[in-house]
Amino acid sequence: MSLTIKTKPRIKKNDLLMHILLISIGLFVSFPIILAILTSFKLPSDVTNYPPTLLPEVWTVENYVTAWTSTPFWRFFANSIIQTGVIVFFQVLLSVMAAYAFSVLEFPGRDLFFYLIIGSLMVPFQLTFIPNFVRISQWGWANTYMGLTVPFLASAFGIFLLRQFFLTIPKELHDSAKIDGAGNWRFLWQILVPLSKGSISAFSIFAFLSAWSQYLWPLIITNDETMRTIQIAVRFFLFDQERGADWGAVMASAVIALLPTLALFLIAQRQLVKGIAMTGLKG
């Protein structure tokens, strides 16, 4: 996958310089994360030492114990998993279906609907979150998984993205499937979806990341501790009125909050990068 031109036999020295440069930039960029991880393993009393140190003098999981026991942390974690799981599942399902309609199916009004859906990307969250908060509240969905998830079950972005991919699938494939007697529904799930595994998993990862990271909406729509997501929990550790922020526990909770997405990234870096690159190129 080397992109620029293959030059002649490379000069080793340049390579080495490039390595050093890139690694230092990389460490600089990832420093906040590394720092959080290191800090979270310090003794609570060492966390606020000045001058600050990088490595813990004594490695301890005390901060994690604090984070985990002083609040129903497992519950926050489970809430995030459920919220994210439901959103990703539906976003993928609904996007696949709509993208199929917009790419393979042909019917009058299709373009109109397409613009209608893409147009929703132009409506900012800023405009909708207050009315949606009021509406969801009136339905009695505050503090429920419904309230956390339902407004996000459809993704115009996902529809757009998958449509772009479906459009690259040769039309003949659909025609021949038709001849074989496969209807749209079967064609979609048995042929098109397996073919689009890459795009779909890329979008799933993308949906996962944004759902997991949600902050403003869960902040306003939940006030019951048992319905809080992990992102909100992190905030509550930090803003502890009339008591100093326990930075050790704050860092431990932040690390727990970033762990699932970090793990996903380490496992599925390729798909993630590919997925994001794909969206960019077609933009």
């Binding site: 969801i136 509240s137 009136q138 009695g140 006030n223 501790e225 905030r235 509550f236 803003f239 009125q241």
Partner: peptide, 20 residues
């Protein structure tokens, strides 16, 4: 239920009157 700072608790309460 811990609602965060006093301000948070107050805000949550006002919002809760909307949400019931």
């Amino acid at each position: 239920t811990y609602q965060g700072s006093y301000d948070d608790t107050y805000n949550a309460l006002l919002a809760a009157f909307d949400t019931g």
